[in-house]
Design a protein around this nucleic acid. Structure first.
Lengths: 250, 250
DNA sequence: CGTCATGTTGAGCGTCATCAACAGGAGTGG
DNA sequence: CCACTCCTGTTGATGACGCTCAACATGACG
C-alpha cells in the first residue's frame, strides 16, 4: 500500500507516488511547498495562452480545464483535471503557454516556484521521471480524446467521457461503487461538457437524456450514477487500458 | 547552427539536438545504434495496441501514424510522424501500448533496445530530458488536434493540417519556400487524411477542392504548394506557437 | 484494383427560440 | 437578528428549422 497522505496536499502526493516511488523526505518538502494556497472562484484563468509562468500550480481541491479559444471565440476543452493534478508542469521546459488553464469550479490552488522545482529535480532525479510519466499519461488521454472527437457519435462521446471520469475518480477515492454501479460528482455545466466533447450544449442535453432514458446513467444535479459500468463502457467503446499508469497500487 | 548530421540517422540526431544539447560522444553512440535498419512497405504495423515492445523504433525515412481502431472498425489517426521521430519511446515507462503505430508509406525504420536506451539515459541524463521535451511537444500537437477535431469545420480542419505539416516539414528542410509560398510532399491518401481529420475521404476530397478553387493550395499528386501561407494560416486559425519547441536553432 | 472525382440523398447535429427551475442578492418587515 | 418576497442571472429542458457532412452511388484514371 502506498503511504497514507493527509492534508490539502494529500492527493497531490498520492498521485506523484503512483507515478514513481518518492523518498519520504521529498514528500515532506513538496508537502510544505504547497502549504500556502489560494482560493479561486469558478471560471478563473490560472494561466493564459502566451503567459510565461515562473511557478507551477498544484490543484488541491476543485476542477480545472486546459482549453484553447479559437479566432471565432469557440472554446475547446482539451483535458480535465481534479485534485492532485499539476497541469502546467510543462512550463518548466516549454516556457510559453500554448493554452489556457481555467477553473471550472471553486478551486484551491497551491504554487511551487520553478526554481524550487528545478533544484528538487536535480536532487531527486526520480521526480523528473514521475513528471515525464505524468506527461505520457496525459498524452495517452489526449489521444483517446482525439478518437472521441473524431470518430464517435454524440451519445457515444458523452458516454465515453463519463466512463473516463468515473474511472479516474474512483481510482482516487472520489467515486463509490455498489455492485456494478458507480456514483460520483462531476460538477460541470452542460456548456462545459459541450466544450469538452465538441458538441453544442443543446446536444449534450439531448445525449444525456438518451443515456438517462436508456437507464445507463442516473442523475440528480451534478451527482451521477452509472448503473452498469461494463454496459456503458461497451456502448461507448471505453477501454480503460490507456489510463493504467494512473492507477494507485495497493 | 546545430551541428550537421549526415547518413540515415541524420534527421534523428538533428531532432534530438533541437530538444537538448547532446554531447558528441552520445550522438556517435546513437548513430551507430540505429545503423542496421529495416525497410517496411506502406500500411505495415510497427507495433500494435496491447504489444509490450522491448525496443524503440526510429523513423529514418518515410511516414508513420499513431492510430486507434474503434469497435466499429473506424480508425482515428492521432498523430503523424516523419523522418527523425521516435514514436514509441513511451514504451520505456509505460510498457503496454495503448495504440498502433503504422507506416503510411514505404518506410525505413531503425531500432534501439530498451536496455541500451535505459543505460544511455543513466549515463547521459540530458537524453531523458530531451525525450521528456519531445513528449511535451507531442502533447501540445495533440491538444491542437483536439481543437481541430472538436471546434473547426471540414475545410478549416483540412487547411490547418496542411499548415501544421508544412511548418513542421520546413523546419527540417523538407519544404522549399519561394516568397510566401511553400512547396512540400505529403504522401498521404485522401483516406488517410480523412482518418487524421475525422472526416470521410469523400469530404476530404471536397474540402481540398474548395482550397484549390480558392487558390490557397495548389496540388499535383502528393506535392502541394501553399501559395500564401499567412493567408491560409489566417483562414485555418493556425498559430505555430504550439510547435515552437521543435524549431531547430540556427 | 486502389485512388480520385463528383452527384444525390438524408441523418445528425448546430442554431435559434422559448420556458421552467434554481440560486443569490437586495430589500422589507417582523 | 431572522424569515419572506421580489428580482435577476445562470443553468437546464425542449421544439422548429436549416446546414454540414456521411453514406451510397458511379465513372475515370493511373
Amino acid at each position: 500500500m502506498a503511504p497514507h497522505f493527509n492534508g490539502p496536499a494529500g492527493t497531490f502526493l498520492q498521485r506523484l507516488n503512483v507515478l514513481a516511488d518518492l523518498p519520504a523526505d521529498l514528500s515532506t518538502v513538496l508537502h510544505d511547498l504547497v502549504a500556502n494556497s489560494r482560493s479561486l472562484g469558478a471560471n478563473h484563468d490560472i494561466v493564459l495562452q502566451g503567459d510565461q509562468p515562473s511557478q507551477c500550480c498544484v490543484i488541491l481541491e476543485g476542477w480545472v480545464s486546459r482549453n484553447k479559444v479559437g479566432a471565432a471565440g469557440k472554446r475547446q476543452i482539451t483535458s480535465l483535471h481534479f485534485s492532485g493534478a499539476t497541469p502546467d508542469i510543462q512550463s518548466l521546459l516549454h516556457p510559453v503557454m500554448d493554452h489556457n488553464i481555467t477553473t471550472l469550479t471553486k478551486t484551491e490552488v497551491g504554487f511551487i516556484p520553478h526554481s524550487h522545482m528545478r533544484s528538487l529535480m536535480e536532487r531527486f532525479p526520480v521526480l523528473k521521471e514521475a513528471f515525464w510519466k505524468d506527461t505520457l499519461l496525459e498524452l495517452a488521454i489526449a489521444r483517446e480524446w482525439e478518437v472521441n472527437l473524431g470518430a464517435r457519435s454524440a451519445v457515444e462521446r458523452t458516454a465515453h467521457l463519463f466512463c473516463e471520469m468515473a474511472t479516474r475518480l474512483e481510482w482516487f477515492g472520489r467515486a463509490t461503487r455498489s455492485g456494478s454501479a458507480l456514483r460520483f460528482e462531476l460538477p460541470l455545466t452542460q456548456i462545459q461538457l459541450g466544450e469538452a466533447t465538441g458538441l453544442s450544449s443543446v446536444h449534450i442535453n439531448r445525449s444525456m437524456r438518451t443515456l438517462r432514458n436508456s437507464g445507463m446513467i442516473e442523475q440528480s444535479r451534478h451527482w451521477f450514477t452509472i448503473s452498469d459500468l461494463p454496459k456503458l463502457a461497451a456502448f461507448a467503446d471505453f477501454n480503460p487500458d490507456y489510463l493504467l499508469a494512473e492507477r494507485p497500487r495497493d
